[in-house]
Design a binder for these strands. Structure first.
Lengths: 187, 187
DNA sequence: ACCTGAACACCGTTCAAGT
DNA sequence: ACCTGAACACCGTTCAAGT
């Protein structure tokens, strides 16, 4: 690897965040990951906190691009499934979202967790309304599905549930009442 | 306050844990809380980790005493409600349990979170079986209720839900299918 | 334009000395 | 039996010097 950019540092920090949480976004370990001395870090960023901010900004932008790309999917049901798979699946996005909610003590972290969650909830709510559900009912189902996912993730984390259910997106679809063809039926 | 005991330090550490999580169980802040120099800490404990262990042991013992005291309550429904209020309510136990699950990266922390959660789940499962439910169905409902609580707590933490619902224990009772008189009905 | 390596501050840890 | 205060190690941060 040649000379590094601030983006290289932000990307390495984001990988560290996904693997070890906010605490892992530390100057020395990320420098080691990049194979440079920790001193060089301060040419790119003012301090450790700025690195965390850059990593969070980067992640938030990624989640936003996922939502933007959904416009290409015409069928609302299919659109919902794609979002759920990206948001709740096994990828880095799901891991980071769960970590940020866990470490929301830090106001910066909590703010990003809240914004990204709210963006997803609003989008899912929009799909349900497009399918004909009233606003309040759409909100209720979306909160139940997102809360249910977080609860399952927490139980998996401590080993009470052995492993993540194969089809979390499918479970969430069911919780949203989107299994059959009649979305106004019971959740 | 006169001279301190190891128990005094463990209790102060437990209070710090409830307020600020595992990271707050640090030598300097806890010493300040007790009004002594950080040097004196090492007369009572080998290191910071031993203090965290003592705080966790103390908390686990407290949760065990809650379960032991339930034996005095004859009615199974009432017994369930008392446990739910203590485990899911606004008290320190609920705050600590949620924090430990959030910070379960640390194996010591994860182990305690898993043991205490499993103990509660097993107890609740026992009550449901006493009310006539088959084992698998009892387990399913208990996991849904505990997972649901964790999900709601997470959403409250980041501010997606404004505040903790007034009667979380009541919601959990409903999720367990214990609202009416027929526990074999739908959850 | 980016990196190294030495230096300094902070908190966890040690320890000799105090009561 | 428990506490203080100085000292040392580690990681975040600074900075002069290197390419």
């Amino acid at each position: 690897m040649g000379r590094l950019s601030a983006d290289d540092w932000a990307e390495a920090a984001l990988a560290a965040l996904a693997e070890g949480g906010v605490a892992a976004v530390a100057v020395e370990p990320v420098a080691a990951r990049l194979g440079v001395s920790k001193g060089s870090f301060y040419w790119h960023f003012a301090n450790r906190r700025a690195l965390l901010e850059a990593a969070l900004r980067r992640w938030e932008a990624q989640t936003e691009r996922v939502i933007a790309r959904l416009e290409d999917v015409a069928d609302p049901l299919e659109r919902m499934r794609v979002l759920l798979e990206r948001a709740f699946g096994e990828g880095r996005d799901a891991a980071i979202a769960f970590r940020l909610i866990s470490e929301a003590d830090d106001p910066l972290v909590g703010e990003v967790a809240r914004r990204v969650s709210e963006r997803r909830l609003a989008y899912m709510e929009g799909v349900l309304r497009e399918l004909g559900l009233p606003r309040q009912e759409a909100r209720r189902r979306v909160l139940a599905a997102y809360g249910g996912y977080l609860g399952v993730a927490a139980l998996v984390r401590i080993g009470t549930i052995r492993e993540m259910p194969d089809d979390l997106a499918g479970l969430a679809m069911a919780e949203l009442g989107l299994t059959g063809n009649d979305p106004s039926g019971p959740p």
